[in-house]
Design a protein around this nucleic acid. Sequence first.
DNA 1: CTTGCAGATTAGACTCATTCTAACTGTGTT
DNA 2: AACACAGTTAGAATGAGTCTAATCTGCAAG
Lengths: 148, 148
Amino acid sequence: MIRNLTEQDKEHLQEALVKSGQKVTPQREAVFTVLLAERDHPTVDEVFHRAREVMPGLSLATVYNCLETFVGCGLVRQVNHERESTRYCPNLAPHAHFRDKATGRVHDIELPPEVLKSLRSILPPGFDSEVIEISFHGRAQAGEQHSN
Amino acid sequence: MIRNLTEQDKEHLQEALVKSGQKVTPQREAVFTVLLAERDHPTVDEVFHRAREVMPGLSLATVYNCLETFVGCGLVRQVNHERESTRYCPNLAPHAHFRDKATGRVHDIELPPEVLKSLRSILPPGFDSEVIEISFHGRAQAGEQHSN
DNA sequence: CTTGCAGATTAGACTCATTCTAACTGTGTT
DNA sequence: AACACAGTTAGAATGAGTCTAATCTGCAAG
Ligand SMILES: [Mn+2]
Ligand SMILES: [Mn+2]
Ligand SMILES: [Zn+2]
Ligand SMILES: [Zn+2]
């Protein structure tokens, strides 16, 4: 269930960390592995429990630290929905999030470049946006499986 | 600075409250007045302090209650940005939010119907969204005054 | 080798926005 | 008057997230 990182993934991790002057550690590998294994936008706590199965001594503080580090070096995105616990997403392609009212699950929604562009175009001159967050909230029919 | 509600606004408030089986109270009027007076997306605490100037006995709990009530009956929108305190917005037209990195201020960004439509169109069949939240984060040049 | 250092990890304390609880108030009804 | 009921209130509780201070872990210098 928590299969190991591919060589590709390891390189991706290492490059991003080293590029921002930080080290690859067993804890960071474990946390990153968890994020890639199941792309269901886990909360910190969920990451913590999953990672512990493979590294029992891991602390919650370290999970917070690792995730912050990953966000900082662009390996992972933070996903916020209203006041709920922060979730984490390793999908680096531009996408929106859909939270299912019924299940609480969060799905990735592909964001085509032209839609992104039309969104940017609504900003009046003088407004320069680095981050755009788009989140939907509603119902997804069962059967509409994870476009996770 | 906290000028009174117009007859229009009073009717709007009353209608929304009564329609959902709730009462118009002095506290609710005060909180609503604060929201309409300065449309700068205040936090609960900011609403609290502003409303107190006009109603010194008002409690923080009541401000939370009023705002929740208003959101519930569609008088006001909640605005979330990452993990910051929740803000409140009485602008009922469809719009996005832009948070200025430098000042922390939140600006309303008009959302034209065709952009809203193109956004809805990215949802795969089976996904039915009731709420769409769009937030930008970046820098607004001074001089780009409140498109509040 | 030792030692020193810097970054990383850890447990636990702490913060603070928000929620909850239980007492109280005000208004309208029997 | 006694009651019902929504709303208000102060303060306690919650809990995600942050901070602190004590280790740990490589690695590099002496
Ligand atoms: Mn969100
Ligand atoms: Mn937001
Ligand atoms: Zn995602
Ligand atoms: Zn707004």
